[in-house]
Design a protein around this nucleic acid. Structure first.
Lengths: 200, 200
DNA sequence: TGTACATCAGTGAACGCGCGTTCACTGATGTAC
DNA sequence: TGTACATCAGTGAACGCGCGTTCACTGATGTAC
């Protein structure tokens, strides 16, 4: 009858378990990211609504809005690294080039499925790039496995890894601009093109 | 004595020249883009302050905020195409690979010198990508000149062009994240790496 | 040449809104004695 | 076993702010007669 928001009555945490709300807030913020445009749309009040709590409650876990965004960034980078690790582990051991491909697919799959998260992580000015370094290192390691298996790389392993990750990052940025320009192929083909360039 | 804003008293345009203000508004908005974070920071009131006019005056030239942003996008894409065209024209005719390099440099130079503009143009969801298509076509044409001069490409010209532009776009996105990850080389080296991959 | 009026460029003041943040509070659950 | 008090999780109401947008206006410059 009333305009039923999708937020049911919340049961407050038990004595001594107040820290749980911190996780609930991050989950709510993460859910919000899927639907909104940019970082500016991530508001204290919006997150509070999504979490089914009062805005003031957020201040027991984050000193201000900036701290909330920062906490969310760490949370999301954890998710990306997890996704890439799983993709790598799922690929067969005896196909090192396939593992590189799997890692890159894990990367862009996360980026495509979580555009809001990805934008927050990589598209804002003056932000942290250390986590991206870890991603590059993963790819580099996979490339070195290829070389040990006899494949020739046309650039040093690290430069190849940077080229691959950065190029995929660029392609993902295009994907997020919704309509793919005419003549630009799929992400999968793009990664295959890249790999064919990197390998001799 | 008072907090002197950098906005001197404006002289209003003469009778019949009201359209001039439209250009002044776009110029002011463009100046603002250099200093602010994202599209959300581009406010009607902020642009009015930068232009030295009343907020209400903007509504004589743009129906609402969305129209202002749209007008600004067209204005900025015009500037990018101009910059790339000049870079291409400045390169020597007898070095087709050099012209490809010059185009890509023109591209990333614009992007690096105008981070706010570039973000507005390419980093927001559901945006226009037709202008990027024109950029790709320019590079493709330059690549075909290389082939006519006897250079072998490792991928069809169009795919090569897409790979180049998209990869540079990705690298630029990294640049905008201020601190370059350790081990990632300069934009110039990155473009050279890319070209060495595309050419056989 | 006057004079009444139309058109132009641009504005000041106000509106309602959602925001971040603060502060005193409520009610439940634990602890000291 | 009571009882007074401390600590916990979480809130309601209010604040000041900047925003987009509207509207009736001002004063200068053109045009009709």
């Amino acid at each position: 009858m009333a305009e039923a928001e999708s937020v049911p009555a919340r049961v407050r945490n038990r004595w001594g378990e107040g820290e749980r709300l911190r996780g609930e807030i991050l989950e709510a913020a993460s859910r919000m990211l899927s639907e909104i445009g940019g970082e500016d749309a991530l508001t204290i009040r919006g997150v509070a609504r999504a979490a089914g709590i009062a805005p003031a409650s957020i201040y027991q876990h984050f000193t201000d809005r900036a701290a909330l965004v920062h906490g969310l960034l760490e949370y999301e980078f954890g998710r990306l690294q997890e996704a890439m690790g799983e993709a790598d582990a799922a690929a067969p051991d005896d196909d090192p080039a396939g593992r590189v491909r799997a890692q890159l697919r894990g990367y862009y799959t996360f980026a495509v499925e979580n555009p809001g998260h990805y934008r927050l992580m990589l598209n804002n000015g003056a932000q942290r790039t250390e986590p991206l370094r870890e991603v590059i290192t993963m790819v580099r390691t996979a490339l070195e496995r290829c070389r040990q298996a006899g494949t020739v790389l046309r650039l040093p392993a690290h430069q190849s890894a940077v080229t691959l990750v950065v190029a995929v990052h660029g392609r993902v940025g295009l994907q997020h601009s919704s309509t793919r320009p005419h003549g630009v192929r799929t992400l999968e083909s793009f990664v295959d093109d890249l790999l064919s360039l990197v390998f001799a």
